[in-house]
Computed example of a mutant assay.
Amino acid sequence: MQIIRFADIKPQPWRNGGGVTRELASHRGAASADDGAWDWRVSIADVTKAGDYSAFPGMERLLTVVEGELLLLSVDGAEHPLEKYRPFRFPGGAASSSALPTGDVRNLNVITREGAFRAYASIIELSKKRAHPVFAGQLGILLQGQAAVSHGNAVSEDAPVPLDRYDAVVGSDSQTPEILGRGFLAVVSIDPVAG
């Protein structure tokens, strides 16, 4: 079972210097050999001032506000008010910027290479009675509350491992991790595009 501890990740400046991000996971594959970039990346960014976003031509972005109330996102001149826990998809190469009408926000960002991968994000409410499995190709990220993760379909004597806010659990189809608790979990799926 793999847990990515948010507290251990050093913040990195955005490409354009407009904020900081913490990379939870990324993948570099054959499609990235030409430009040296990743094929997909999952990160959490702090947005503390209005301004432009870095451009990622040839990529698709899936952005979810996970802390704060509202982000006013402008994509190619069209404004989109993004409320907490509502994922929004847009082209990575689009001219995009944001305003912060209600103060600072923190975003969950999933960026995928167009034509190679497609990302999905679901925000679910956790239960203490019914564990939520995290399968291969998924990350489970604790957004709020208290939770612990254990091996779900394997016989294990190990006690559940507590999660801190923004810790990520890497999914698996063998010994599938299961998360129990109270709060909200982001389940990010990265699917290869067929063809």
Results as ranks from 00 to 15, higher is better:
R89F: 02
I44P: 00
R41E: 10
V42D: 00
K10D: 08
F88L: 10
A31M: 10
L82M: 06
G36A: 04
R86H: 14
A25Y: 03
Q12G: 04
E83C: 06
D35V: 01
Y53M: 14
L71Y: 04
A95C: 02
H80N: 10
A33N: 05
V20M: 08
F90Y: 11
P11H: 00
K49Y: 09
L24E: 04
V42R: 01
R41M: 14
T64A: 08
V42C: 07
D46R: 10
G92E: 04
R89P: 01
A31V: 07
E69S: 13
G51N: 13
R89E: 02
G93F: 09
E83M: 06
D46T: 15
G77Y: 04
L82R: 03
G51I: 13
G36K: 12
P11R: 00
A45R: 05
A31S: 12
D52V: 11
N16I: 11
G58D: 07
N16Y: 13
F90P: 06
G29S: 12
G18C: 03
V42M: 01
A31N: 09
E60T: 11
R15S: 12
G58N: 08
S74Q: 14
V65T: 06
E60H: 06
H27R: 15
K84C: 13
S74R: 14
N16P: 01
G19C: 15
A50H: 06
V65E: 00
G92N: 04
G51T: 03
R15F: 08
H27S: 11
R61I: 07
W38D: 07
A45D: 08
L63V: 11
G36I: 09
L73P: 07
L24A: 13
N16E: 03
A25K: 03
A50P: 00
A25C: 03
R89W: 00
K10A: 15
H27Q: 14
D76P: 01
E79F: 07
L70T: 07
S74A: 12
E79K: 10
S26A: 08
L24W: 00
L63R: 06
G17N: 05
P91H: 07
A25V: 09
T64C: 01
P11F: 00
R89V: 06
L73S: 03
F90K: 01
W40L: 07
E60N: 13
A94Y: 13
E79H: 04
E60S: 11
G29E: 02
G58W: 02
K84A: 12
G51Q: 14
G51H: 10
R28S: 14
P13Q: 10
P87F: 06
L72T: 05
V65P: 00
G77T: 02
V20E: 15
A50Q: 13
